[in-house]
Design a protein around this nucleic acid. Sequence first.
DNA 1: GGGTACCACGTACGATGTACGGCGATATGC
DNA 2: GCATATCGCCGTACATCGTACGTGGTACCC
Lengths: 252, 252
Amino acid sequence: MPAPTSPRDPARTLALLWGVATPGARGPQQSRTPAEVARAAVGLADAGTLEALSMRRVAAALGLGTMSLYTYVQNKDDLVDLVVDHAYGELYPQGAVPGDTWPERLREVARANVALVERHPWLLDVDLARPVLGPGETRKYDLELRAVDDVGLGDVEMDATVTLVVSHALAAARRARAARLVAETSGQTDDEWWEANAPVLEAIADMSTYTVAARVGSAAGEAQQAPYSASAELEFGLGRIIAGIEALLAHP
Amino acid sequence: MPAPTSPRDPARTLALLWGVATPGARGPQQSRTPAEVARAAVGLADAGTLEALSMRRVAAALGLGTMSLYTYVQNKDDLVDLVVDHAYGELYPQGAVPGDTWPERLREVARANVALVERHPWLLDVDLARPVLGPGETRKYDLELRAVDDVGLGDVEMDATVTLVVSHALAAARRARAARLVAETSGQTDDEWWEANAPVLEAIADMSTYTVAARVGSAAGEAQQAPYSASAELEFGLGRIIAGIEALLAHP
DNA sequence: GGGTACCACGTACGATGTACGGCGATATGC
DNA sequence: GCATATCGCCGTACATCGTACGTGGTACCC
């Protein structure tokens, strides 16, 4: 890290995220709006990876000097929070998670989250474990909770259920992206890979003891080459989670 | 990014991970072993965060010049792979996942992974979605698969099950760490937080529409302050996953 | 109109990963 | 036993990062 992240004032971050204008403005007005900042930053991240989201580049995209960006955000972390929350705002444009039954709605939650990170792959490089508490995440959280409201779960269980489904969807998307990336950068098929690494693999004596890993790994590898493999893994976990919740509702 | 990660030769990475010596060595021998490199790097990462794992620092800890480290690893990514695989080697020192029944063993898999990332928190900052294919991860994968071998699942289902449990355990650990970090850096209780942010929160008009988020969020927040909250979230997901697999075994 | 608070910006610092080239030791081929 | 090709090691340099600091100009309040 170049310089340890400077401390943030949480209240200022909240005001930025929610667009609360500070009343007493003595000097000149800011020439850009926080929404413009967020849009420019999302555009940069979408075009490349999260690495493309540098303070210098975002400032340049806004037609500002580098340090001027610091009058909008306190930090780079602040900027990332702004961008993440902005992206979350795209979810559920209908204003609700569609679906007639709660299992359908949970599946839709997973599908929507996967679609979001496919549109914005850099989201997978951000630590989403910490809450942002902006309008986008709050709305997302609210709508996803409503998907499992009134089905017989307690409040804490509702939170845990939504968290479980979303984190499973993101993990599956992350693995799908990793597999895609390996296939792209290596640029070789599985056969070519085995051929290239055969001399090394043969020199590994212990390999013969990992029989289950070899058997299952090759089976999973072949399945992964089949179309819809990513959605198959997503579907397996989703099916188990939903069945597990049904079991909980049946025997509370 | 300073310089776009230089390309890697996968075969060389494999040889490094498995400790395969290259036969034709004309010049002088390396003065350190790959295991020493891994130990030094793990020590640095354990002492701080993943940021502490810089090429300069690892080289210095080994008593080497910075660029000499590049005769051991091709890349920083290579170094990270080495370190991750080394850490994975600590898992299951008994040589098997303990437990009499497969649900017990799956719980043990989750517990062991959580314990591992508590000992090495920097693991949570590494993208573990892409496979490393070193001895540590191969052994881990093999032992975890054996925990659900011969219970009636197909090969692909075994893979998906283990992946689901591990990724859930890691996600829960990540959220636990994030909550701990927020509590530490803010240094204030929940009451103090609400008081500090009350003026901002009152200015947010839309907040009143997010009734479910407010209700569940505060309930989850209070539960989070209770001891064992992290393990409670872990346990909820584990229970749902296991129940879901039982349902699958009952109705295949 | 004077004072003051705030936006914008240029410069500079420490940190990162790594490309490049030179030096010196060493194990092999004769 | 010796020449030489090879490889470990390292110093320097470059682009890039986040951001601390200081300066100048601008718009509002009294």
